[in-house]
Design a protein around this nucleic acid. Structure first.
Length: 943
RNA sequence: GGGCCAUUAGCUCAGGUGGUUAGAGCGCACGCCUGAUAAGCGUGAGGUCUCUGGUUCAAGUCCAGAAUGGCCCA
């Protein structure tokens, strides 16, 4: 005879409980690499690419990360993940969407890192050896970054990435230079750069260190020309005969010989100050400061005017027989000085910029050693720092000095010899942006910028930018492919020289530039086209790395037309800092040689901040390392993070945020596990229930699914992944977990295994599972693939990988507004019912809601009729044992709740607990199974 | 200092053309279930919508200014 316990187990065995081997825990950190191995070994990426027609394409062109490190940081991870989500989504949606990752590998940061790492410094290596080290350094970092990217689950042509140091890339770069030169867009000019007079070398921004330095500051007066003096007085509305001076202030007296202008701020107010027989112009705000510094007394303000009133008036240089013109610039501030800024375009970057606008030429009367040249007149032969004293002496003699003080301030020093550095104008190569600026502005208008503000941002920059200096005095880069004639001094760039250099680089890389001499490159008989001389030399400068990456539209997109279909591509997707960087350098070179923008759309994302919204910095020690997150939670959680935030603005990441995402990740997995477990025996071929035959709540579930599919699709199409995240999360938690699955559980478990009602629910579960797997795939590809591997073969649509599927379309006929309206109302009633039961639970009068029966009524006719229509299903929907509409519950009413015109009375359920389905029923003691209900008896007989 | 951007519950996000007690999911608290179980369900508490002015009968929503934070310049 069976014991009670055994009998219970017997009935339990007749239930259809979920079955699946999919583990509840993802164990992602360990599982993901296995999945990636599966993709790699089975060429899933390549298969996806080849199954899509090139007629429908979406090309995202990768911006090359810089190879300064072998580890990627969180910002790079965000960027690559966003790109990959998009590429995967487009691929699933049927687009031909290949992805060729790129790397930026020339430039100063790499060169500096290498120089620092070698004993003996730069001098211990030949340029060729140095370049070789740089190449190795870049290769090592590439390997590290590539591993990081692959570990994120990023798809792409990893076999053949593009690289700015590949010979074919460098060759194209030389050709682009040649084309731009031929169009007259490239010229040689002077520009101030940091210069160390002791090392006799140009320095980059990164090569100067700031340290305190004591300088002599001086106030110098520049006398107005008599004509212009009158005009100035007129502007200030004063009548006076005394001589008028603009007073400048500088901490580098030696640059006075190079002064060509005086800069004022157009919007500042300037005072005319009378000092005995002279009048000075000083910015009103700085007057106090000026007086205390110069110790002048008994002065008075006799007039005022705006900076803009004085534009283009001339003063006389106190030491030379030339003018110094008053010009206007935004760099003039009231922080120090007089508001009249000494402007020497050869010795200051701002000075240079503002003089460019006024077409004032550059004057830099210093040689490599920092010694004044003949252009400095009487100071010729003096070293610049000795020039300070000499200049001050002369100014005194000319009665042009108004004051002199020593000040200590932060000043740039050479990182090698630690001596102060200067700005010195040197010959540089430029791109004449002005020549095609309007074309570029026009092109900007025709690009779709997301977010929209990007258009203004880049527009402002292109509009106001000066010419692009593309030369660098360094070793690790593509040489500027120019020869010079040593006899006539002309620069030589012809289609012939460009072709020869390009072809050579294509074979041997740009290392060939230093390796061969001119005659080897151009041929023994090559002669200067200007003077027929055969004495030629090579340019020693290299190109700005922004020029490297700026021509990928040509060296990659056009050069690999078979794969990338040629420029312009559909999208560039980078951080918002690239408006100044890659978006602009790419735009300018593309406009210059092709007349079109290289992209149709530009999508930008913000920067990654810590959990408190602070910038990540060494001093705060608040860096979030992607590798750490991946090692603990897996790449999919990081990917989910990227998808969960509105990346158009800055985004935050921190422990708390990641923990929340892990919860969502688990929730989705568990929900999928439940779906999977309940359709283990479902064969779509035979068991699929046609829409018309589905139960109404199942139709409602499909309606909700269809709404989800459409919302999610729209979110991806708009690149608004965070909306996708919200939709998916809500659907999993609300529509499925707490509503549909909770209700349908009973049917799945207790109904006959092959009953139509169970199959009806299974059909919905099956459709839901497939749709969600597909919508997980772009964002959580590992998780989706992992789950998919546990899907029974019959349900897999013949797919080898979920990443080879077609995007979920659902079925338009699932949209059912009538059912939606009705069930939304029923859901409201359900809320009132659960709320009404709640107090009884708190009082321990009731545990499971199945111990309860309810009487429901409503003052709303619509609701009443909806309830009536579905009367027999209501108990299941409310997860109670009985629902009464017309008559009150037979047992004592334990609680009543009325809300929104819906009245619910709760009582104990009728009958006894059925041992099989746990619902309370009036049991037939005389039947074969006296402890289970009628429905269960029927179900058992069907099994 | 200039250009561009952001600021709604602890977190991630909603809140067309200004109009009743500002929403969702998660998290949290409390409880239930023990046939999704290192799961599942329910209920509840959380917001002076960054601030200050202004327009208006009425402002998270419009205007002006400010603060804080971010990117790019200087």
């Amino acid at each position: 005879m069976a014991t009670e316990e055994e009998k219970k187990n017997d009935y339990k065995n007749t239930l259809n409980l979920p079955q699946t081997d999919l583990p509840m825990r993802a164990n992602a950190a360990q599982k993901e690499p296995e999945i990636q191995k599966f993709w790699e070994e089975n060429n899933i990426y390549e298969k996806n690419i080849s199954q899509r027609s090139k007629g429908k394409s979406f090309i995202l062109h990768d911006g090359p990360p810089y190879l300064s490190s072998d580890k990627i940081h969180i910002g790079t991870a965000l960027n690559k993940i966003l790109k990959d989500i998009l590429v995967k989504y487009k691929s699933l949606s049927g687009y031909y969407s290949p992805y060729i990752p790129g790397y930026d590998a020339h430039g100063l940061p790499i060169e500096n890192a290498v120089v620092k790492s070698i004993k003996g410094g730069r001098e211990s290596l030949t340029p060729t050896q140095l370049r070789e080290k740089c190449r190795e350094f870049a290769a090592k970092n590439l390997k590290g970054q590539e591993e990081n990217f692959k570990r994120l689950g990023v798809w792409g042509n990893w076999e053949n990435p593009y690289l700015t140091i590949k010979p074919e890339f460098e060759a194209e770069q030389v050709r682009v230079f040649g084309e731009m030169y031929e169009k007259g867009y490239i010229y040689k000019g002077l520009k101030p750069v940091y210069w160390c007079a002791d090392c006799e070398t140009a320095l980059a921004e990164a090569e100067v260190e700031y340290a305190d330095h004591t300088s002599t500051s001086i106030f110098v007066k520049f006398k107005f020309l008599s004509e212009d003096e009158k005009k100035a007085y007129q502007k200030a509305k004063i009548e006076i005969q005394k001589p008028l001076y603009a007073v400048i202030w500088t901490t580098t007296p030696w640059t006075i010989p190079a002064n060509l202008a005086i800069s004022l701020n157009a919007n500042l107010e300037y005072s005319f100050v009378e000092n005995r027989e002279e009048v000075y112009i000083i910015a009103t705000e700085l007057l106090k400061n000026f007086l205390s510094e110069t110790k002048l007394e008994n002065i008075k303000i006799i007039g005022k005017c705006q900076g803009s009133d004085l534009e283009l008036l001339n003063t006389k240089h106190p030491l030379y027989n030339r003018n110094s013109t008053i010009i206007l610039g935004d760099h003039v501030t009231t922080e120090a000085g007089t508001g009249c800024v000494h402007t020497a375009p050869g010795h200051g970057l701002e000075d240079y910029e503002v003089c460019m606008k006024y077409k004032i030429p550059v004057l830099s009367p210093l040689n490599n050693k920092g010694i004044f040249t003949s252009e400095a007149g009487e100071f010729e032969g003096l070293k610049y720092n000795d020039g300070n004293k000499a200049v001050i002496e002369r100014l005194k003699e000319e009665n042009a000095l108004l004051g002199q003080n020593d000040i200590s301030h932060s000043y740039p020093h050479c990182w090698r010899c630690k001596k102060p550095v200067i700005y010195r104008a040197t010959p540089q190569w430029f791109v004449d942006v002005g020549a095609f600026r309007s074309e570029a502005m026009e092109a900007i208008k025709n690009v779709k910028w997301i977010p929209k503000s990007g258009e203004q941002r880049i527009g402002n920059m292109v509009e106001s930018r000066s010419d692009w200096c593309i030369s660098r005095q360094r070793a690790w880069g593509v040489p500027i492919p120019v020869f010079y004639c040593e006899d006539c001094g002309e620069a030589i760039v012809t289609s012939e020289t460009i072709a020869k250099v390009a072809d050579l680089f294509e074979k041997e890389s740009s290392d060939a530039w230093t390796k061969y001499d001119v005659s080897e490159i151009l041929g023994k008989d090559y002669e200067c086209p200007h003077c027929k001389s055969r004495k030629l030399k090579k340019e020693t400068d290299i190109m700005d790395v922004w020029f490297d990456s700026g021509i990928t539209h040509r060296a990659v997109v056009d050069a690999r037309k078979e794969e990338l279909l040629g420029s312009p591509v559909d999208m560039y997707l980078e951080g918002s800092d690239q408006h100044r960087g890659w978006f602009q350098s790419s735009l300018l070179t593309s406009i210059a040689i092709k007349g079109i923008a290289p992209y149709k759309e530009v999508l930008t994302h913000g920067f990654v901040l810590d959990g408190e919204g602070r910038k990540m910095s060494k001093s705060l020690g608040n860096f979030v390392e992607p590798q750490k997150i991946i090692n603990v939670y897996g790449a999919d959680v990081l990917r989910l993070w990227a998808a969960s935030v509105d990346y158009r603005n800055d985004v935050k990441i921190g422990d708390n945020i990641i923990k929340q995402l892990v919860e969502v990740f688990k929730k989705v997995r568990n929900t999928m596990r439940f779906l999977l477990g309940n359709i283990y025996d479902f064969d779509p071929q035979n068991d699929y229930v046609q829409y018309e035959n589905l139960e109404e709540i199942d139709k409602f579930a499909l309606h909700r699914l269809q709404v989800l599919i459409e919302n999610v699709t729209q979110s991806f199409n708009d690149y608004e992944f965070y909306k996708y995240f919200q939709f998916l999360q809500n659907f999993a938690a609300v529509d499925l977990s707490s509503f549909y699955l909770d209700i349908v559980k009973d049917r799945l478990y207790t109904a006959g295994k092959k009953s139509i009602s169970r199959k009806s629910a299974q059909t919905v579960l099956y459709e839901t599972m497939l749709a969600i797997l597909k919508m997980m795939a772009p964002v959580m590809p590992h998780q989706a693939e992992d789950i998919f591997s546990y899907v029974p073969k019959k349900q897999k649509l013949g797919l080898e990988s979920i990443l080879l599927a077609d995007w979920c379309k659902g079925n338009e006929k699932w949209l059912n507004p009538q059912i939606d309206e009705k069930w939304t109302e029923i859901l409201r009633v359900r809320e009132v019912v659960t709320k009404a039961i709640e107090p009884l639970r708190a009082d321990k009068k009731v545990g499971s809601s199945l111990e309860v029966s309810v009487h429901v009524s409503s003052t709303n006719n619509k609701i009443t009729s909806y309830l009536k229509e579905s009367e027999k299903d209501l108990a299941g929907i409310f997860i109670t044992s009985q629902v009464f509409l017309n008559k009150p519950t037979p047992n004592e009413i334990l609680n009543t709740l009325e809300e929104d015109g819906i009245k619910v009375e709760v009582a104990k359920a009728q009958g006894e607990k059925c041992e099989r389905c746990w619902k309370y029923r009036i049991l037939d003691k005389n039947s074969k199974h006296p402890t289970i209900c009628e429905d269960c008896q029927k179900a058992i007989s069907e099994n």
